[in-house]
Design a protein around this nucleic acid. Sequence first.
DNA 1: TAGTGGTCTAGACCACGCC
DNA 2: GCGTGGTCTAGACCACTAC
Lengths: 238, 238
Amino acid sequence: MNKFKEIFLDLEQKILANEYPPHSLLPSENQLIKTYGVSRETVRKALNLLRDAGYIQKKQGKGSIVLDLNRFDFPISGLTSFRELQDTQRIPSETKVVEIRKIAVSPKLHETTGWPVASEAWKLIRQRRIDGEVVILDKDYLDASIIEELPENRAKVSIFDYFENDLGLEIAYAQKEITVDPVNKELRDLMDLRPEDQHVVTVRSLVYLEDTRCFEYTESIHRLDKFRFVDFARRRKI
Amino acid sequence: MNKFKEIFLDLEQKILANEYPPHSLLPSENQLIKTYGVSRETVRKALNLLRDAGYIQKKQGKGSIVLDLNRFDFPISGLTSFRELQDTQRIPSETKVVEIRKIAVSPKLHETTGWPVASEAWKLIRQRRIDGEVVILDKDYLDASIIEELPENRAKVSIFDYFENDLGLEIAYAQKEITVDPVNKELRDLMDLRPEDQHVVTVRSLVYLEDTRCFEYTESIHRLDKFRFVDFARRRKI
DNA sequence: TAGTGGTCTAGACCACGCC
DNA sequence: GCGTGGTCTAGACCACTAC
């Protein structure tokens, strides 16, 4: 474990434990240098991680102010997977694999992912049930030249877990798009929509590895009333 | 201007000009040190900015790979304001100020923003018209102890511009939430909704200054068919 | 083995806030 | 004036990639 990561985790845990409550100041960089016995740049790296994660706001001449953001809000999509969401929010839920098989890449899927037409891909469809109702439908397409095996029992839990821990893949970044789309017959069959539901929220994600290969395309389809996306964003100036 | 910002801007411009096309490598850190005559940490700061902005992916032992992301996609909400969106996407559009006045902070607004009940706030409602139709309605609430004057002709263009350039406020970060909400009579009156529209997309944002004061709460309400949110996200490991 | 990026150090000077 | 964070330097060692 790197030094700056250890310092980050230690400070994060202290913030979450209210040892450094909101609106208070963290110890100064000079104090942290002494506390952890490291150089200033190492302390600053840890503080920048805290800043990027939305824990603190740094102010020249003053110090690092602890922020007061709802840490119970979570993006329901994107790189934070359904399983993480469920673990953190303790929402009783259930996943059913509807379809899991290899397909040949269609021209349309090629358009989106860049994978060669007719090459192999996994198609995975899962129903996400909360309080007994299917309110999320996840459709995943995976590059079969990267993901050779896809055991159903792993798909039932979290495929990200499987990719990172079992296959050793390094997931690096993703592009996401959120739109509202009309309901079609397939969705009515696979989801517990109410008669008045004419639309669903669709979160489309392209997920990339460290070597910039795109290995996954996902459509996560949410019932309108169950959709919520929250985000923390910093002003990018320059 | 800081050295690392200059290097960032120079490399960004070269990437956008296709001097470093997608999938190619940037010059190595050692080469950039010589090119710009700076130390390695300064080069690395510039490269990290490019990474965070989604321009490159760095790989140990290999180099900085230029990514190929659609730079024409924009978050339609949040810290990127409507005016920036419009400038960049060249969508012919028009803004009409419906309401601009000072109000007393209600208990409900206090709940959201933390501003003292009965203190003064600006209420600003604007219609955003695209292709002749009001498809976005922006409701802004501003702390009047921070924003003392709010000229209507500035509100018509971009209030962020006014805050940053005229008032010298430093906008630091924001919390955003996206949900889908039922339509009510007020929205039917103020927006060009179609008869079948039963819902709208609401983007709620709390915007904060460098000193962690919350100075703005915004509800940006979008017609379903005109809403699109895109994002670039890095996997946060640790 | 040579070259790449990742981490870490010890020091310098500057800009800002607060008293 | 003192302490704070912001920028920058010169150098070290390590881990990874490619050949």
